[in-house]
Amino acid sequence: MNLKLTRKLKEVIASRLMLLITALSSMLIFVMILGLFLKARLILATQSLPELLLSTSWHPLRGEFGFYPFILGTIWVTVLAMFFSIPSCLLTSIYLTEYASAKIRAFIKPLIDLLAGIPSVVYGLWGILVVVPLVKDHIAPLFGYPTSGYCLLTGGFVLAIMVFPVLISVSEEVFRAVPHEVREISLALGATRWQTVKHAQMVPRIKGIIAAIVLGFSRAFGETMAVMMVVGNVAQVPSSVFQPAYPLPALIANNYGEMMSIPLYDAALLLAALLLLLIVLVFSVGARIVLLRIERRVV
């Protein structure tokens, strides 16, 4: 009887404790949003959000905090990275799911996992040693642009490489979710493999593929160190891919914790952090909703 009671007690206490920990942890995201908002509120009280987002003038000492160049820098780096990574990752994941033999897959998959584990400063280091000189001495001269190599193109390329593993694994999941029967039916009708991929697997699933890509990118969107190490960090609106830019995460990383004596400076930086957080939140929740809906419809 006594033993039974202890066991029961343990069960009750443990489940309450677990509930507490779980509930607290799932609140973390809201706590972060709230905490950042409370700080960022100070600057929102002096200027309206559209003003802050669209102004190009960044002069903290004069109390001017225009985020436009940084937002543009972030968008540019991300778009460039998408441009480099989406086609190659889609092709690779199609190759791995539809064409490659088990042996090749068993060789390549661990390598891609490994790529996922490399720390971002190592990517940055590699970017400085390899990509920066490559852009400076070989690629930019082709187009007739003088550049230091620390520019948007380099940042976009390094970010693209960092996105590879995530993007490959999410799009692989989409292709793997295609039932084997679909493949068989299409091939049995005399389609080539590529026709099967294109017409039976990609076109009907285009929404899922887009959602997977967005999801992959929401993870890379706020990537800081590697991009910051190669993108130049000049607060200007870039006019070509060979110019330096200054993405939001780099702005925060370079300045937060320093120059705290300038009024509102930290509030502005935390507003930048809040923006990053919210953008990631919107994209990842949106993508997930689309993916969930697709799953439900198929089942």
């Binding site: 029967e181 679909v182 039916i185 299409s186 009708l189 026709q195 017409h199």
Partner: peptide, 27 residues
């Protein structure tokens, strides 16, 4: 193309009735 196949379970492709029949000819 010369040899059609009917599977164990009926398995429509994830598209409309029309597109299912038109799939092969389009290919």
């Amino acid at each position: 193309k010369k040899i059609g196949m009917l599977a164990q379970k009926p398995y429509p492709l994830p598209m409309s009735i029309y597109d299912n029949v038109a799939y092969g000819p389009r290919i």
